[in-house]
């Protein structure tokens, strides 16, 4: 039982893909201008990661070692295509906002990394839990970063159908936060805070 709990919590805290391993950074920096974009991207990547982990874990004993990477990539690409179509059909505004970063989930090193390091060696249930954990960790990181950027850059928090004005009317927005440089700087500062948090609670 404790291994199963550990499988979930590891991806969220100890091996958080964004804060600890710095994997899959392109969407992290690219889409986090608004909270709903960050959440949408997080959920999309989580679904792909979850499905890919389960399928790869199921077929792990049939895949010859020498061609495993192309096999993983085809599995991942299939799920990315499905997620891309579903987003386009049901939530076209989110699909347009995320743009090129939806098809690019296929080359997200976080997903290939989990397939290679975990799902190709572990049973289905553990791979599923690992996918859930890493996916949640990734989504939390995206939402945190996009909240920082949107609150400082626009003074709002958007939630798909509208936006909440959190800073009041007298707020002078820091425009740079919504521009590309803001992504690098905000993530850098957030990393300092997260590292301090980890050190304080002794999570290693």
């Amino acid at each position: 039982m404790s291994t199963l709990v550990n499988d979930i919590s590891r991806g969220i805290l100890k091996e958080n893909p964004v804060f600890r391993l710095l994997l899959g950074m392109c969407p992290v920096l690219g889409v986090t201008v608004a909270v709903d974009n960050g959440l949408g991207m997080g959920v999309a990547a989580t679904i792909v990661l979850l499905c890919a982990n389960v399928v790869i874990s199921m077929v792990r004993s049939f895949i010859p070692k020498s061609v495993r990477i192309p096999c993983f990539i085809v599995v991942i690409a299939t799920f990315v295509t499905m997620v891309d179509m579903v987003l386009e059909a049901f939530v076209p505004p989110v699909h347009d906002e995320l743009g090129i970063f939806v098809p690019l989930i296929v080359v997200n090193c976080m997903i290939l990394g989990r397939a290679e390091a975990f799902a190709s060696k572990q049973p289905v249930l553990r791979s599923l839990l690992d996918g859930i954990g890493v996916g949640i960790g990734f989504t939390i990181a995206l939402v945190l970063l996009s909240a920082v950027r949107e609150i400082l850059g626009d003074g709002t928090i958007s939630y798909f159908v509208g936006e909440l004005n959190v800073m009041g009317s007298g707020f002078d927005p820091m425009g740079v936060m919504t521009l590309p440089p803001g992504a690098f700087i905000a993530l850098g500062v957030l990393l300092v805070l997260v590292n301090a948090f980890f050190r304080k609670f002794k999570i290693e």
């Binding site: 710095l22 740079v176 440089p181 700087i185 850098g188």
Partner: peptide, 21 residues
């Protein structure tokens, strides 16, 4: 010490990106 590693790289990249902006 707090800024070492990826943090200072990200901040550098941010300034570089600001210049390209």
């Amino acid at each position: 010490e707090r800024l070492q590693g990826p943090v200072v790289t990200l901040l550098t990249a941010g300034i570089l990106s600001l210049a390209f902006n």
